[in-house]
Design a protein around this nucleic acid. Structure first.
Lengths: 172, 172
DNA sequence: TGAAGGTAGTTCGAATTCGAAGGAGTTCTC
DNA sequence: GAGAACTCCTTCGAATTCGAACTACCTTCA
């Protein structure tokens, strides 16, 4: 098991440019695994729950709707309903019907939720630092961030369905 | 064009070096989402099932044990039992007790499994190419692969203290 | 040898996930 | 304004996931 480098875990017969795919999968899985452990230990939170709290805690006074949250996560709406309900049960968030739109729901962080977030975030950053930030020097890290950002932009600009042979050149 | 930061998705109040974390999470989630759709459409496979088949199809005549598989995936053992059982039901893999070690199980790809893999892989590579490979030019992609590889090596060399299957320090 | 401890997989129950279907509010169209 | 079409969110059932407990086998060591 501890033998593979990005290129060495490339299945034989595959063009080498796909090494980036396997390297990405492995790194993201390991990073996620690491933070999941920390969140469970320090705050008894799942990763999704933490992400919800973190988004809600983003120093934004106006509340978010469920759809806003679902857009920021890569989650299904039903799964989001479940997790927000769970956070509401725990007293970490509130749900209230939107005043503008009766079908909408405004999700807000409670003081308890904000406090939990503050208690968990330092350890979270510490774990992430140990896994990601310390793995590279400043130049490398900035380069990695930039490359991932470019890929992210490409992915976001990509139509989710029937996307084949669509022009790869995306104007900014 | 100094857009090498992911500041747009970095929550306010966080040191900028954590941009790499959020960029990684977003990209991996989007990529995974993309391939999940393709695998479901083209082969009615979940991502985990595909990963199992792909590992088994790695041109390796000698079979793998469940533990070998679990080490290559980031999965729990029980989840692996479930999925391999499911693949066995579908006739895509076989399970047989190991001759060396009676408690071990040798997992093998069946011809049907190999055929399904061959049917699914081209579309898979096409989707990955469209999402990842085409997002960058050759130099950038190689750089990204190298950086991810370096992070991966760092992560593998740094077992989180609660790691279960820490094999004894493997000398290089 | 034979008991103690370790390893390989499975089973079990609980939690989480998703997609599809449904209920309710909103917008569009005529 | 009435109805169709759409959006927001929840409910529902089925599938998947995990950790802990368990069985069976292997290895160590006295």
């Amino acid at each position: 098991m501890p033998e593979s480098e990005a290129s060495s875990m490339l299945p034989p017969g595959l063009p080498p440019e796909f090494g980036v795919y396997f390297a990405l999968l492995e790194v993201s899985a390991l990073v996620e695994h690491g933070v999941v452990g920390q969140l469970r230990r320090d705050g008894d939170l799942s990763f999704v729950q933490f992400q919800i709290l973190a988004i809600l805690g983003e120093d934004r006074p106006s509340p978010l709707s469920m759809t806003d949250l679902a857009d920021r996560l890569v989650h299904s709406k039903s799964g989001l309903t479940y997790q927000v309900g769970r956070l509401e049960q725990s007293g970490l968030v509130t749900r209230a019907p939107s005043s503008d739109d009766e079908r909408g729901v405004e999700v807000r962080l409670t003081p308890e939720g904000a406090a939990l977030l503050e208690r968990v975030v330092p350890g979270h950053l510490e774990v992430v630092r140990g896994m990601l930030v310390e793995a590279l020097d400043d130049t490398e890290r900035e380069r990695l961030t930039g490359l991932l950002g470019k890929v992210g932009k490409h992915l976001r600009a990509r139509p989710p369905r029937s996307a084949r042979g669509i022009a790869a050149a995306q104007p900014d």
